[in-house]
Amino acid sequence: MLGWFETDRDLFALDDFRRRVDRLFDTVARQPASQEPAAGRWPRANLWDEGEALALELGVPGVQLDDLEISGHDNTLHIRGLRRVSAPEGYAAHRRERAGLRFARSIALPVKVDFDQTVATLDNGILTVRLAKAPEPKARSIQVRPS
């Protein structure tokens, strides 16, 4: 008899556990897709050394220039933006893989740059931010005079 009792309690515990897991998945599944990129880092970035300048490329298809905010501070470049994805009016959706999202990336730059000379262009869904390198302090030669 005792054996049955125990089993029942174990099954109850298992059932309870299953319900908890279901609830957890429900919570995860209901999170709005617009808050976070579904997988990995978005947008993806390339950083290039062009000699006089650094060039940062970001793949941001569907992002409008007005929805981008670029700032620089302490040799770190901050890019924030919003990608709006909305179903066209009057259409029913069969499949939706493109997520609307808010994003923010900060990129620590390997060399000193002059943020006042930053040029950003948006072309075919690729944002290019060109950052002029700050001039290196000139090496000074100290003359040694014979006494």
């Binding site: 298809p61 009057g90 259409y91 893989e97 493109r98 869904g125 690729i126």
Partner: peptide, 16 residues
Amino acid sequence: DIYENDDGFLIVADLP
């Protein structure tokens, strides 16, 4: 994304 209405289908794809 794939959408449909009475007049046709609309495919939207990211090609950065």
